[in-house]
Design a protein around this nucleic acid. Structure first.
Lengths: 214, 214
DNA sequence: TAATTTAATGACCAACGAGTCATTAAATTA
DNA sequence: TAATTTAATGACTCGTTGGTCATTAAATTA
């Protein structure tokens, strides 16, 4: 019955990751509900039936995509922070640089946009992502801020809220790239964006020098 | 044939806005594809057939929701900026305060999240929103920044990129509220968030004083 | 080389949701 | 008050898509 014009090739070991890659790309672009599994399988170069050999259903595929996106960058950054002994702002810059290289320039960069779009449809998955990525990232930035404030490098601000303000432009950079950037006339340079963000932050966080020396 | 358990009431004039309000709420929460018109009409308290009396199809309803979200706040802010003569940072604060009151605390605040989620599925609509809201908002912030830099109030930075950095936390505040905030243990206070953002920005933008007075 | 295993296929099915429309009934008009 | 207009309804249709599975054919085994 199945009578393929293209000769088949069995590649069982490669299929799951090919399907995940195709699914990530399409889920990020269209969202869950508007992504058809026919398109996912076509992009992966297999039939729709093949997709079901590896993933139980559409939702299982979606969950696998998110889970696969939890790669060890957070752990790396946690290790970097644990052994950092210089000034706290340098630590923030190191964390950002590592994240930018390992996430910001890969396909996983689309996941924040996907999570924004789908969090209310999949609250449990959103919680999973929040706990494994956002929460840990916030903790990293928070501890760097706290340290800087304690050492007198940074001025005193509410840490939990400042973390949100610090992280927002970083997340927004990715979210924008996969959403509204399509209708923007000119493309802004991510490196310059991040540089200006950090520059504003460096000065914005700096503890003012004493007006008078007593 | 139609035999309603609930008595009917003709309210033709009120229907469109009721439907739009219901649709906005559900589109923001679930996205376009995962929102059923059965649910929109139920939320508006009418039958699905009634919805089609006022909107040609699902996409027309969606477009109407976005277009209705383009309210005159941008024009107000443009008027505020046109007659502002104080320091540029005060202007930024005025713009933010007006926007926060007129958008940030209304149901329209959900539109940025909706546009993020759907921009790739509806690129023309995304362009429309970009041109009518984002672009104009960027121009406002940009002109305030430029003015501050020219007057010596702010230090020199690339204006177009700085605009993005300034706007990012503001947009992120709204996007987050309608997405990942559901999985956050503690709720961060929007007012404190905006205050810290502006505080960091004020200091971050400040032009350093001359080291020596000649 | 034939038999067996199993990855891959595409035709098919059923459920769902967008869209339709004949009918009803509220409201207005004569 | 009866006739007319028209807003509102819910049953219905149909196309799409997630999911199924009998069949095929690639690869391995004996």
């Amino acid at each position: 019955m199945p009578n393929s014009a293209t000769p088949r090739k069995r590649r069982k070991e490669a299929r799951p990751s090919e399907l995940l890659e195709a699914a990530l790309s399409l889920f990020v672009e269209k969202g869950f509900a508007a992504t058809r599994l026919e398109d996912v399988s076509a992009r992966a170069g297999v039939s729709k039936g093949t997709l079901y050999l590896y993933f139980e259903n559409k939702e299982a595929l979606f969950k696998a995509v998110i889970q696969e996106g939890i790669i060890p960058v957070i752990a790396e950054n946690e290790a970097i922070a644990a052994k950092h002994s210089g000034c706290s702002f340098d630590l923030l810059e190191l964390l950002l640089a590592n994240w930018w290289t390992k996430i910001g320039q890969t396909a996983y960069a689309g996941i924040p946009k996907l999570m924004v779009a789908e969090s209310r449809n999949f609250p449990e998955l959103a919680s999973f992502y929040y706990e494994n990525v956002i929460s840990r990232g916030r903790a990293l930035v928070g501890s760097a801020l706290r340290r800087g404030m304690e050492s007198g490098e940074f001025r005193g601000l509410d840490v939990e809220t400042t973390v949100d303000v610090v992280i927002a432009p970083i997340l927004m950079l990715l979210i924008w790239r996969y959403s509204m950037s399509c209708c923007q006339g000119s493309e802004s340079d991510p490196q310059m964006y991040l540089r200006i963000h950090m520059d504003l932050l460096r000065q914005g966080l700096r503890k003012p020098e004493k007006e008078s020396q007593v």
